[in-house]
Computed example of a mutant assay.
Amino acid sequence: MMPLDAETALADTPPGHKDELRLWLRLLTCTNLIEAEIRRRLRAEFDTTLPRFDLLAQLERHPAGLTLGEISRRMMVSNGNVTGLAARLEEEGLVERRVSTTDRRAQSLRLTPRGRREFARQSAAHEGWVAELLAGLSDSEREALHRLLGRTKASVRAGLQEGGT
Rank of each mutant, 00 (worst) to 15 (best):
M2D: 11
P3C: 01
L4E: 15
T8Y: 05
D12I: 09
P14E: 14
P14Q: 15
H17E: 08
K18W: 13
K18L: 14
L23Y: 13
W24G: 11
L27T: 00
L28W: 10
T29S: 10
T29W: 00
E35P: 03
E35R: 08
L42I: 03
E45F: 10
E45P: 00
F46M: 03
D47H: 15
T49E: 07
P51L: 01
P51W: 03
R52S: 11
F53I: 00
F53P: 06
L55A: 07
L59G: 01
L59N: 07
E60V: 02
H62N: 15
A64W: 10
I71Y: 01
M76Y: 05
V77R: 08
S78E: 03
N79G: 14
N79H: 14
N81H: 13
N81Y: 10
G84K: 12
G93I: 08
L94W: 12
V95M: 04
V95N: 04
R97M: 01
R98D: 04
R98W: 11
S100D: 13
T101Q: 14
T102C: 03
A106R: 12
Q107G: 05
Q107R: 15
L109G: 06
L109A: 05
L109V: 01
T112G: 05
T112P: 04
P113S: 09
R116M: 04
E118R: 15
F119Y: 10
Q122R: 14
S123Y: 14
E127P: 01
V130Q: 09
E132I: 01
E132K: 12
A135T: 05
G136N: 11
D139N: 10
D139Y: 11
A144L: 13
A144S: 12
R147F: 04
L148V: 05
L149N: 09
L149F: 06
R151S: 11
K153Y: 08
A154Y: 06
R157Y: 12
A158W: 01
Q161Y: 07
Q161K: 14
Q161M: 03
E162T: 09
E162S: 09
E162A: 13
G163Q: 03
T165F: 15
T165G: 13
